[in-house]
Each structure stands twice: as structure tokens, then as C-alpha cells.
């Protein structure tokens, strides 16, 4: 059980929610399962951890259906059912301490995990460039510029068009399918190192139901447990 601290509307349908819970601290790129109580929802929803500080969890989400709609109605001091953190996180794919230069690409709600990642990378002294893509109104510009050495914002276009892929930096991407495909294509052409964070429909979020599996070069993998972070080359549909 977790307690809502605040749940602010940033722009149409997009909310920033802070929750207090003393469950285990997350690693960058992990997510939690959230279920607003009392709305007849059966399953919890996977939501990325944008930020974590001393038991205060920050989530960024967009209202797209029943669950996120119920979430948007929560007010400060309401309860929310929460379990996690889940998933491997970026650092299990590639140790973050080893990265000297990183380029983070976030599109839509895929910007959320990039915030926590940028913060962690900055702590290890890496140079962090962040590219954010929005369809209309940009959000959280100030917050992201605080954790970036360079911040590039794209509105209404393709965020990947602004990114020069080359060997050397490590690239991270999270966002809608077309963005991920474009990033993978450019990374492949440049021979660049790219780590992606994927989405899939989930039931358990724990690795038990096999509802979220994807095909990879190493066989079937669970996005919730073996991912959500993968090297792009491994993921069927991105890698080849």
C-alpha cells in the first residue's frame, strides 16, 4: 500500500504523481505495478519510476484508459495499491558506472525512465545529453535540464531526426514503436550501442504469467522480468 502525496495535471491528460512508500528502492529503468483501489480494476498497471528520493516515488503518466483514468482521480492522502520495483533496469544490461558519455532519447511517456537514468548517470560523472520528443506541448523542461548537460526538445517531429548516432556514447531509448524502430535503424547504420526500454501488456509483472513475452535472439523473454531494458540487437523486430 502506498499513499498519494500529490497528483498534478501537467497538461491535457498527463499527470505527475508523487507517492510515498517504503518498499525497496528502485534502480534506473525499473517500474512498479500500480492499481487504484475501488474502481473494479482487476489488474495493476505497469508504470515506470521517473524519480525516487527517500521513499518518495515520482510517476509520469498519460490517461489512455480505465486504469490511468482512475489514477488521475486520486487525490493527496488517497491509497494506491503498489508493488515492485520490477524489471532489470538499464544497469543490468550495461553497468552504468562504465559509461562516460550517454545520449538519452525519450518520446511521449517514454521520457519518464530517462529522468531517473540521467540522474544516476550524472552522479557517476558521465556526460548526459537528453533528447525529448513531444507531439504537442513540451513538459518538464526545467526538471530535465537540471539533470542534463545538454537538452534537446523536439515538438511535433521525429525526435530521432535530431540525434546523431556514432560509436562511443551509449544510447538509451524509450518511446512509441516508430521511434524505437527509427532509433534501432540509425544505431545499426552507425554501429552505435543502443539500449531500449520496451512496453508490453502485462498481468503479473513478476515473470509468472508469460503474458508479456517477446521474441529475442536468445529465445522468448519476459519484458517484465528479463526486461524491460534490452540491447536493441537482441529484440526481434528491432535488431535485424
Amino acid at each position: 500500500m502506498a499513499l498519494i502525496i500529490d497528483n498534478k495535471k501537467l497538461t491535457d491528460g498527463i499527470y505527475l504523481m508523487r507517492v510515498s512508500s517504503n518498499i525497496q528502492a528502485p534502480r534506473p529503468g525499473q517500474f512498479v505495478m500500480l492499481r487504484p483501489e475501488g474502481d473494479g480494476l482487476f489488474l495493476a498497471r505497469p508504470i515506470s519510476v521517473m524519480d525516487w528520493e527517500n521513499g518518495v516515488w515520482t510517476f509520469l503518466y498519460k490517461v489512455v484508459g480505465k486504469g490511468t483514468e482512475a489514477m488521475s482521480r486520486l487525490e493527496s492522502r488517497d491509497d494506491i495499491f503498489m508493488f515492485g520495483p520490477m524489471g532489470n533496469g538499464f544497469g543490468r544490461v550495461l553497468p552504468l558506472e562504465k559509461i562516460r558519455k550517454a545520449v538519452l532519447i525519450g518520446g511521449g511517456m517514454g521520457i519518464a525512465p530517462m529522468y531517473g537514468l540521467a540522474k544516476a548517470l550524472r552522479k557517476t560523472g558521465a556526460h548526459v545529453k537528453i533528447h525529448l520528443g513531444f507531439t504537442d506541448e513540451p513538459i518538464l523542461r526545467k526538471e530535465f535540464s537540471d539533470v542534463a548537460d545538454e537538452l534537446v526538445i523536439n515538438v511535433g517531429g521525429y525526435v530521432t531526426d535530431d540525434v546523431r548516432f556514432e560509436q562511443g556514447p551509449v544510447y538509451f531509448a524509450c518511446g512509441p514503436d516508430p521511434m524505437m524502430k527509427a532509433a534501432a535503424r540509425k544505431a545499426r547504420e552507425a554501429g552505435a550501442e543502443l539500449i531500449v526500454s520496451l512496453e508490453s501488456r502485462m498481468a503479473c509483472g513478476m515473470g509468472a504469467c508469460l503474458g508479456c513475452t517477446i521474441d529475442t535472439t536468445k529465445g522468448s523473454k519476459r519484458v517484465c522480468k528479463d526486461g524491460p531494458c534490452f540491447r536493441y540487437e537482441e529484440v526481434t523486430g528491432l535488431g535485424k
Binding site: F42, L210, T213, D215
Partner: peptide, 22 residues
């Protein structure tokens, strides 16, 4: 390998699954 496509779907106080014995 189980079934391709969507495998889990929430329903009113329940869920549908089509894992296909992976």
C-alpha cells in the same frame, strides 16, 4: 513458444489469457 499477439486482457473483475502453454 506459446501464442503470438496479445496474450492477456483485463475484463470486469477478471482477465482473459491466451498464453498457449509456453
Amino acid at each position: 513458444r506459446g501464442n503470438a499477439g496479445i496474450r492477456v486482457w483485463e475484463t470486469p473483475m477478471g482477465m482473459l489469457n491466451s498464453i498457449g502453454l509456453e
